[in-house]
Computed example of a mutant assay.
Amino acid sequence: MITLAAVAAGAVAGVGIGQGAAQAAPACQPYGEIGSTWHGAGGNKSYLGHCVDDEHAVPGGRAQGFAGGAVYWSDKSGAHSVKGLIREHYYNMGASGSFLGFPLNDEWGTAKHTGSFNHFQGGSIYWSHATGAHEVHGAIRDRWKSMGWETGALGYPTSDEYKVSEGKRSDFQGGSIIWNAKTGATRVIGNAAAAVAPAAHTTSAPSSAGQKALAVAATKLGAPYVWGANGPSTFDCSGLTSWAFRQIGINIPRTAAQQATVGSHVAKGDLKAGDLVFFYSPVSHVGIYDGKGNVLNAPTAGQGVKYTPIQYLEYNTARRI
């Protein structure tokens, strides 16, 4: 296994971590979107600390190493940091040159604060003290997500996805998910199987207008944030929501404050996938609820369209279109 020590010694192409944090910071300076992410985190005083190399090219984009992590950027994902054991696992898998691609969020804590995760263009890496860091992707990730991520009966992943005679498999604390290569279906085995119906999992088509808009908006994951933009390739927060509803034949107002006046009010405890959720007072941000505690949103400059846990934003109200 490649370790960060090997990366620091130059054994791996990509973002090194320098020759050791004990040495003086080199004469490098973060700039552009990577610099914006670094400054937004707190610069030298943040978990990232000082830079240890110059910004440089990696497969598909740019990256820069810091004493406490690395920031990766691409035009589709924006600039996001990876750190710790998630970062090390990301390196071992090939970083941006792997199927994971670029990170879509900075590392976040999980819902019950028992671990942390990064979502990537091609999957996710979840970490906890009990399980370590492991990737989940594809249909297996979709099934795990439908069961509540790490808060569901399966808990955290305990393995990466690996081949079995039936197709692919990932193991979790509460069981395993197996993907059938012939049928495309997934099934759950182990203790967690009692929490789901025994039939193979199928995904029904979106039923409500909000769910349809959510599905449309999800096709723009990673699209760059541009203030005042409303698609089809760049968005601000209300530009994304108005564009998504427009694609299904529903026109809603352009700004977040205006959107907060249409449809019907929904209590926070009654949120369903597809509801518009508004943040801050006065309302200045909006996203589409995914049914799992997150909103799909266009957050701010330097960050692409992504899922953000509601708990990290200042909730105001919600509306159902």
Rank of each mutant, 00 (worst) to 15 (best):
H265G: 14
Y225S: 05
F279K: 01
L313Q: 14
A197G: 15
A318C: 01
D275Q: 10
N294T: 10
Q247V: 10
A199T: 14
A267N: 15
V286E: 02
S204V: 08
A209W: 08
A244Q: 04
H265K: 14
P206Q: 09
I189V: 15
A217S: 07
P253H: 05
W243N: 02
R246I: 00
G190E: 10
A215G: 03
G304M: 05
I310G: 00
L296A: 06
L276K: 01
Y315F: 14
I310D: 00
Q259S: 09
K272G: 08
D236Q: 07
D270K: 12
A267Q: 13
G222W: 01
R246G: 15
A256V: 06
G210E: 03
G274R: 03
F279D: 02
N297I: 02
R246D: 15
G291T: 09
I250T: 13
R187C: 07
L296D: 02
S284L: 08
A217F: 04
A209N: 11
K220D: 07
F245Q: 02
G184F: 04
A318H: 00
V216Q: 10
L296R: 05
P253K: 03
A223L: 01
L240A: 08
Y280R: 14
T186H: 04
N251F: 04
A256G: 06
S284A: 14
G249Q: 10
L271M: 09
I310N: 01
K306Y: 05
D275R: 06
G239I: 07
A244C: 07
F235G: 03
Q259Y: 03
G184I: 04
V196C: 03
Y307I: 06
T241L: 07
N294S: 13
V277A: 01
S281Q: 14
E314P: 15
R246L: 08
A260L: 00
G269H: 04
A229D: 09
P282Y: 06
I189K: 12
N316G: 02
V305N: 05
T308P: 05
